[in-house]
Amino acid sequence: METLGGLDKIVKHSVKTSRRKAERDQLFQKIVTATVTKKPDISKIQTQIGIAIERALLLCAKIKELQTVLVVLCDLHGRLDLGEIGIPFGEDHNGCKILLTSTSSEALSKHMKVDKVIQLSET
Rank of each mutant, 00 (worst) to 15 (best):
R19K: 12
D115F: 07
R55V: 02
T47Y: 10
A22G: 05
K110Y: 10
S121T: 11
V69C: 15
R20W: 01
I85D: 03
K64L: 06
I87H: 07
S104N: 13
P40I: 12
A22R: 03
C74N: 12
L66H: 03
S14W: 05
L73E: 06
G90M: 04
I45W: 05
F89Q: 15
I87R: 05
E54R: 09
H93N: 10
V36I: 14
E23G: 00
E54G: 13
E122Q: 14
I87K: 05
V69L: 11
L66Q: 02
I45S: 11
L100M: 14
Q67K: 02
L100I: 15
G86I: 02
K39V: 13
V15P: 01
V15T: 05
T17M: 08
T37S: 15
I31A: 06
K16G: 06
C74R: 14
T101R: 11
S102L: 09
K16L: 13
E65F: 00
L76T: 12
L108S: 05
P40W: 08
M112A: 14
A56L: 02
S109K: 14
T123G: 08
L57V: 07
Q29L: 06
S43C: 10
T35D: 08
T68W: 00
G78F: 07
K62C: 09
N94L: 07
V11F: 03
M112Q: 12
S121C: 08
D75N: 15
H111D: 15
L57I: 07
Q67W: 00
L57K: 09
G90H: 04
G78H: 14
S102W: 07
K38W: 05
G5C: 15
A22L: 06
F28N: 00
V117Q: 09
K38E: 14
I31D: 06
G6V: 09
I10L: 10
Q29H: 13
K110G: 03
L80G: 07
G90C: 04
G95H: 04
T35S: 12
I118A: 09
A61T: 13
I51K: 14
T37K: 10
E23V: 00
K64G: 04
P40C: 07
A52V: 06
C74P: 02
K9R: 09
G5K: 03
L108M: 14
D25V: 00
C60D: 09
S18I: 04
K116T: 15
S104L: 11
G50I: 09
D25E: 15
P88G: 04
V32P: 03
Q119N: 13
